[in-house]
Design a protein around this nucleic acid. Structure first.
Length: 775
DNA sequence: TGCGTGCTTCTTTTT
DNA sequence: GAAGCACGCA
């Protein structure tokens, strides 16, 4: 008996009592690094050990990563065969699954599409256009965030329209028509058989409200409810949990109010603060012992977070040694900052043999990754970016997925519009607009309108009509394959028969090649997904993949999880992780805290919590840096040290950077010079395709850098790749004056061309393509 | 209708 | 730094 519960011995007293407290309501307040995940996983394992059925446990997380990690850990204790029956996943994935099952009740097809943010924005854009509203005032992002706010608070379009307070806020923002957009948006989603992210939660609420019987079914199904990161739940999620827990009252939530960083998308810390009122007889467990970081780091973080008014009092203490002080370093520019960081890592790695996976560089915004990447690449340090533009957000991936989506749900208008003329089949914008206007006017999906097109009296030429019908036929044909064949084979067939593969194959530019490879990667991903997930039962089909693809993120695609690389990510995506060495870059006012988050005290406190999260990721060494100048919108802007640095108690920090090898004194950085350099193009050894006797003209400042198709190659819209110039691994140039034409064909080597750089590099700057001549 | 080009605009964080 | 849009040419 004792033997099988041996894992309990790995816990401290409080952790252990939290784990052993199975029935009733409980809240675990888990400070940073206090073993929160451990408690959660051990608790679930313990429940299973006590004989509770895995399928009666629902465990909700916020990220797929967290869910997967937890499942893995539980499998290790209890065995995969039991663990796989747990209902464990993100709110969105679990409830999307349930919604598909219960689709009828809420009047949706079970094959409903999930609109991602881009789809939603596109739809809003069309609606704004239809309503003839000023698109400068009614910007998609703003509208979407209003709609999202409403949905997260379970305010329907109707309720929104009749809520005078909300309408007033919109009026103050000079956007009084938002309620109309919301209404139409809803209707249009319904007609398309589509839900957006917030709908998944909102419709779940509706489902549970629809009848006692259904709610009770799920209350009885999920006898035990566990929620991770409870401080990040919004009202909609809160209500789902509340309804489910009402009957059996077996609910355990885990969270840390000090790490609440998602208020911007509706999270309410109050859910945590009010928990004991919601569930009488709540037992509260406070985990205050930090196992992760040194005393110095923990103390500095505690000291900082005390400045927030809103919080549950806690006393986090470290059991580790005192440790070294937090290093604060200043750089002249963001480029230099990146170099200093890369140098430090290089030094520690090569001289002191610290593993690359022990390093993390954290930043506030995704765009900061670029400079850091450049520096790391120059130093030959392997790195991996988490988050950022998701693999699934790439154009080519979205294109192919749109085919899948349309095949499965013909009424998915956003998918339809995306691919009706991709690859080009001579169906122009005018035709599409006319067709979709007709659909809107008749209140049907575009597909349905297209079906009837032959008989329709709209101004579309006979040839265009035929082309549209051909397209429909193609999609219909694919549909048969989807049902009958193996997911991978089907996907491959669709990719090739749709013409996507061919379209990408002819494009030999670095991006073209990388796009082609991405498609291959997606196909492999599908193969992987459908085989990996089946675990003995019926193989998963393409349908299963597509149903989930909108909810997948970057990390879900990476097969090589534990390689030796430095991790780069935003502070948000670093939550829950830990590293021996942490660098926090760009600690500047208006960047961290963000310029957008300074208006209210709440926002500023959230930024402070974010900084707290960043600091507490570090186990042993923490370096915080900032630059005095940084590129913003392509222009060099002055920066000031973040107020948060000043808030750190001086006794925990030290200034200066050990690893800055005199970069400043060497004056390598052009920003330090008075005049910008004029560069001469001299190198033509490393010629690229541009030299292949190809006549290409390049005009004005339309030069585009082409980064090697490595970790994240830049994709540059629909610009002609032939006009792109490869400039070493550096980026951004304005050149040749406006409108001046350059001929790349058959030019003398060493031709001098004046280039105006407003972005710097090092002295190794060379243009590596072949020949250039100014005409 | 397709395509290249020049201009304008906008950036927080994410399921 | 990148994407969308409008314009103008083929």
């Amino acid at each position: 008996m004792e033997q099988s519960y041996s894992y309990l011995r790995e816990l401290n007293d409080i952790q252990r009592s939290a784990v052993e407290n199975i029935d009733g309501a409980s809240m675990v307040i888990a400070g940073a690094g206090s073993g929160k995940t451990r408690v959660l996983t051990f608790k679930i394992a313990h429940m299973l050990n006590l004989g509770i059925q895995p399928h009666s446990i629902i465990a909700l997380t916020f990220t797929n990563k967290a869910a997967r990690e937890m499942k893995l850990r539980i499998s290790k204790i209890i065995g995969e065969n039991t663990a796989k029956y747990l209902w464990m996943g993100t709110f969105h994935s679990i409830f999307a699954k349930i919604l598909r099952f219960e689709a009828e009740t809420i009047n949706y097809p079970s094959s409903f599409s999930i609109y991602d943010t881009l789809d939603s924005k596109n739809l809003i854009k069309t609606i704004v256009k239809e309503l003839k509203l000023d698109s400068k005032v009614y910007k998609e992002a703003g509208i979407l965030s209003r709609i999202s706010f409403a949905k997260n608070n379970l305010i329907s379009a109707q309720a929104y329209a009749s809520n005078s307070r909300i309408r007033q806020i919109d009026s103050y923002g000079s956007r009084p028509e938002i309620y109309r957009i919301y209404k139409i948006y809803e209707t249009r989603c319904q007609a398309a058989g589509a839900m957006d992210f917030d709908d998944i939660l909102m419709k779940t609420n509706q489902l549970f409200n629809s009848s006692e019987k259904i709610l009770e079914k799920y209350q009885d199904k999920f006898q035990y409810i566990l929620v991770d990161e409870y401080q990040d739940t919004n009202y909609s999620q809160y209500m789902i949990i509340h309804k489910l827990a009402m009957k059996h009252n077996n609910i355990c939530v885990v969270g840390d109010d000090a790490q609440s960083i998602y208020a911007f998308r509706g999270a309410r810390i109050e859910n945590m603060l009010n928990f004991k009122n919601d569930y009488p007889n709540t037992r509260i467990f406070k985990l205050e012992q930090n196992y992760r970081s040194t005393q110095n780091i923990v103390n500095a973080a505690n000291n900082l977070i005390k400045k927030n008014k809103n919080q549950i009092p806690k006393n986090i203490f470290s059991v580790k040694s005192l440790g070294s002080k937090i290093n604060i370093s200043q750089a002249f520019t963001d480029t230099e900052e990146a170099y200093i960081i890369a140098n430090s890592i290089s030094d520690l790695h090569f001289r002191e043999h610290v593993n690359l996976s022990d390093f993390a560089i954290l930043y506030r915004t995704n765009s900061q990754s670029r400079t850091l990447e450049d520096a790391l690449r120059k130093k030959n340090i392997a790195y991996k970016i988490f988050g950022g533009i998701s693999f699934y957000q790439r154009k080519e991936i979205k294109d192919l997925v749109a085919y899948f989506r349309l095949i499965i749900n013909h009424h998915d208008d956003e998918a339809f519009k995306r691919i009706i003329n991709y690859p080009k089949r001579g169906i122009g914008a005018t035709t599409i607009t006319r067709l979709s206007n007709f659909a809107t006017y008749s209140g049907i999906s575009i597909w349905r309108a297209a079906e009837k097109i032959a008989d329709l009296d709209i101004k579309i030429s006979k040839t265009s009509k035929n082309k549209i019908l051909e397209f429909l036929q193609m999609i219909e044909n694919f549909k048969l394959d989807v049902i009958n064949e193996d997911a991978y084979e089907t996907a491959k067939e669709i990719a090739s028969k749709s013409g996507i593969l061919k379209d990408l194959h002819v494009d030999k530019s670095p991006e073209g090649i990388s796009r082609y490879e991405n498609i291959q990667e997606l196909l492999n991903g599908i193969k992987d997904y459908t085989t990996r997930q089946q675990s003995g039962e019926t193989p998963l089909s393409l349908v299963d993949f597509v149903e989930n693809v909108s909810l997948l993120t970057n990390e879900d695609n990476s097969s090589d999880e534990h390689q030796e690389t430095v991790s780069l990510m935003t502070v948000h995506s670093a939550k829950g992780l830990e590293f021996k060495h942490v660098f926090i870059a760009g600690m500047e006012e208006d960047l961290f805290p963000s310029a957008y988050s300074k208006d209210s005290i709440q926002d500023l406190e959230e930024e402070r919590r974010l900084f707290y999260v960043a600091i507490t990721r570090a186990e042993e060494h923490l370096t915080i840096s900032y630059a005095k100048k940084r590129y913003k919108w392509g222009k060099l802007a002055n920066c000031v040290q973040s107020r948060f640095i000043k808030e750190l108690n001086p006794k925990f920090i030290e200034y200066g950077d050990k690893y800055n090898y005199g970069l400043r004194s060497k004056n390598t950085f052009f920003e330090n010079k008075k005049s910008k350099p004029k560069l001469t193009i001299i190198d033509n050894s490393n010629s690229s395709k541009l030299s292949d006797n190809k006549k290409t003209t390049i005009a004005g400042n339309n030069f585009r850098p082409v980064r090697k198709a490595s970790a994240r190659s830049t994709y540059v819209g629909n610009r002609n790749p032939d006009t792109q110039i490869k400039v070493g691994s550096f980026v951004r140039h304005e050149m040749f004056g406006k409108g001046k034409v350059i001929d790349i064909d058959g030019v003398e080597p060493n031709t001098k061309v004046r280039i105006k750089f407003d972005r710097s590099g090092t002295k190794t700057l060379l243009l590596r393509f072949a020949k250039l001549k100014v005409i």
